[in-house]
């Protein structure tokens, strides 16, 4: 019985297999419409996350399965003080697989240690969000045709951005990846990511403050939001804010086949005018998220 708590739980072969299945689902959705008939997904969302929850639910419905669960801690036994361990044991009696979002980091791991059914981490605090990373990988694969030999720029909040850390970790297994880290000084990538992932795996990387300078080299641009509350003073935030907003002007020097990704929700870091540019892939990324979750649910339920 397998769970997915951290993207590192999957080998490169398994990620490739999930991407292959997701691509087949996209091509032949009817083939998969009854694969999980009679199976139940429990969505245990201890904090609100509309998009991720809906993505999981849509994924299970499109596989012919059913969904039960809750969308905030107040409507669960957690509000009565029940432990994550007990909740997961109880839910194991009702469902076939769990997707859990929890504000506390490591809660899905505790659930997987106690549940008798597979557990999928649907986001634990600022820690992991492996199905977002799978959606990112599927999008890159579909847009670029490969997961090796490309240059990716991560722009914005690289200090606290869990999706950035997870994607860097996942890409560390692929060959000839160049990473350009674009952020203000206040939000640079943590040293441990550099030491324990980038340097350890001999990944070529560059740190810069300028999105414009990095732009011509990029095959993929992964945007994140620079949040005002991360800065010590507002003047610094206002000074830097616009540097990390992607607009059509900044895209003038970009490659024609650049793929622009964003884990969403977007606030203002990508100008709405960019949405109509064929290089904008962030809404396709949302759709890909549903397909890769379908593939993952099937894999963990061992449905062929």
């Amino acid at each position: 019985m397998r769970s997915l708590i951290d993207i590192k739980d999957l080998s490169l072969e398994e990620i490739d297999e999930l991407i292959e299945t997701a691509n087949d689902i996209i091509e032949n959705p009817e083939k998969y419409s009854q694969k999980c008939k009679g199976k139940k997904l429990a969505t245990l969302f201890f904090e609100p996350s509309t998009r991720t929850r809906l993505s999981f639910e849509a994924a299970m419905y499109e596989l012919g399965g059913n969904v039960l669960g809750f969308s905030e801690a107040n409507s669960s036994s957690a509000s009565k003080g029940e432990s994550v361990a007990d909740t997961s044991r109880v839910v194991s009696c009702y469902a076939d697989i769990i997707a859990m979002r929890h504000p506390k980091e490591g809660a899905p791991l505790v659930a997987s240690q106690n549940a008798s059914i597979p557990v999928i981490n649907a986001g634990d605090g600022g820690h992991n969000h492996p199905t977002q990373t799978l959606a990112d990988l599927l999008t890159i694969k579909r847009e670029k045709g490969r997961l090796d030999n490309f240059c990716i720029g991560f722009c914005g909040d690289l200090k606290f951005g869990r999706t950035v850390h997870s994607l860097i970790s996942a890409l560390s297994g692929y060959k000839n990846i160049k990473i350009i880290l674009i952020s203000p000084n206040e939000l640079v990538i943590p040293d441990y990511i550099k030491e324990e992932i980038l340097i350890k795996n001999n990944i070529e990387f560059v740190e810069t403050r300028s999105l414009e300078e990095a732009m011509p080299e990029l095959d993929v641009l992964y945007m994140t939001r620079v949040q005002g509350e991360r800065f010590f003073n507002e003047a610094d935030y206002i000074r830097l804010r616009d540097s990390y907003i992607l607009d059509l002007h900044k895209l003038e020097n970009a490659k024609k086949d650049l793929a622009i990704l964003h884990p969403l929700p977007r606030v203002n870091e990508i100008s709405v005018a960019v949405d109509d540019d064929k290089r904008a892939c962030y809404f396709k990324q949302v759709l890909n998220g549903k397909f890769i979750r379908m593939a993952l649910i099937m894999k963990l339920l061992e449905v062929k």
Partner: peptide, 24 residues
């Protein structure tokens, strides 16, 4: 000591650490 860690609220959990960088 991470206040966001599940061990901060679920007292019965063991505190388990793994070696991630032997040199340091």
């Amino acid at each position: 000591k991470n206040p966001r860690c599940i061990t901060s609220t679920e007292q019965e959990l063991s505190h388990i650490f793994k070696l991630s960088n032997r040199e340091k």
